[in-house]
């Protein structure tokens, strides 16, 4: 059974294990052809299929049954078949549908990015920027909710929520007792705990990391700093409850936030415990592993590790080089 199956995504062919989802196959290829995913989280069983941003077109079902699939499918929950041909960014239909989904996700989102702690590392921002339109056609009042404190460390701001259910799966799968779920239905549904009860669990803080938007935020970090002014470094400590592998976010000398290590798709390497996350905020609690690699396309990378290389137009033009001499030397010194 372990024979690999061949799948082609936007014309790029790859061999993967049977049972791999289209999304994961695309992630192995990487690059622009990876469908965006707001609700799928590989570490949470049963997640995915809800946000509909990862829709793709299957133009050939498999080698055995070459019929195309009648509807667009959620790539995160559809397994590849041998000989399957998938169209993502090469299909205008997919792009149109995705644009529609992004618009729907944003019609009730408050767009309060300027005051939102998630700004700069928000997947909805990326999604809107990459796949959405510049303006909305929605002219009605957006739905709002009151902010809820889930314990003294986590704040839930339902107004920003896109109902991806990731935190519900965390509450279900990481913690023993289910204390947190969905109330109501349709566009009135909300994530909540029963009668605003605090989540008492060592791993409850992970709901902050899995949240793709700013709906669940760390109260110890709230309004402290914009993420792009902080410097992330990888660190670890000997933790009795979790693996202790984290990212520390520095502002100057101070650790102002601790999160799990996330990959380029926003998925954590290991879930971390609340002690690591909320209580160990001194450098001497940690062993620093080194600076964290941040994609140079991320706003977090600005000002930091990547040297500010002069733009090509400066490099080619001697007059501009002379005018920017001081800056140019500083940038190219290393």
């Amino acid at each position: 059974m372990s024979e690999k199956v061949k799948v082609s995504i936007d014309g790029i062919t790859i061999e993967v294990e049977p049972g791999t989802s289209i999304l994961n196959a695309a992630r192995i290829i990487g690059g622009d052809i990876v469908p965006p995913a707001m609700c799928y989280y590989s570490k949470l069983e049963g997640s995915g299929g809800k946000c509909r941003t990862c829709l793709v077109k299957v133009s050939k079902g498999s080698e055995k049954d070459p019929r195309p699939m009648p509807k667009l499918v959620a790539s995160c929950r559809t397994a590849v078949m041998d000989g399957m041909e998938v169209q993502n960014i090469t299909s205008p239909e997919v792009k149109e549908a995705r644009k529609g989904v992004v618009e729907m996700l944003l019609i009730n989102h408050p767009l309060d990015c300027p005051v939102c702690d998630q700004a700069g590392e928000c997947h909805l921002q990326d999604l809107g920027y990459e796949h959405g339109s510049e303006a909305t056609r929605y002219e009605f009042e957006r739905r709002t909710f009151d902010r809820i404190d889930i314990g003294d460390k986590i704040q839930l701001h339902m107004t920003r929520c896109i109902l991806c259910y990731r935190c519900v799966y965390v509450a279900d799968q990481l913690t023993e007792k289910r204390e947190h779920g969905i109330l109501g239905r349709g566009d009135a549904s909300e994530i909540s705990t029963y009668i605003e009860k605090a989540i008492e669990n060592d791993f409850s803080g992970n709901v902050i990391d899995v949240c793709p938007v700013g709906a669940l935020t760390d109260k110890t970090f709230r309004f402290k700093q914009r993420v792009w002014f902080t410097k992330p470094v990888e660190a670890h400590r000997d933790c009795p409850t979790c693996t202790g592998k984290v990212s520390l976010w520095y502002k100057g000398e101070d650790v102002i936030r601790v999160t799990a290590r996330k990959d380029v798709y926003g998925e954590v390497e290991d879930f971390i415990c609340n002690t690591c996350r909320f209580e160990k905020k001194n450098t001497n609690d940690w062993i620093i592993d080194g600076p964290r690699q941040i994609s140079n396309r991320s706003v977090i990378s600005s000002n930091h590790y990547e040297q500010l290389a002069p733009p090509p137009v400066v490099r080619k033009n001697l007059a501009l080089q002379a005018a920017n001499k001081e800056e140019f030397e500083r940038a190219t010194k290393h």
Binding site: K50, C51, G100, M104, F140, Y165, R185, G186, S189
Partner: peptide
């Protein structure tokens, strides 16, 4: 709009929008 379960985004948001 009233009966949408709210699980997937196009239906959750779209039905309400159309109704309005």
């Amino acid at each position: 709009h009233h009966e949408s379960c709210g699980q997937c985004s196009p239906c959750r948001e779209g039905t309400g929008w159309m109704e309005k």
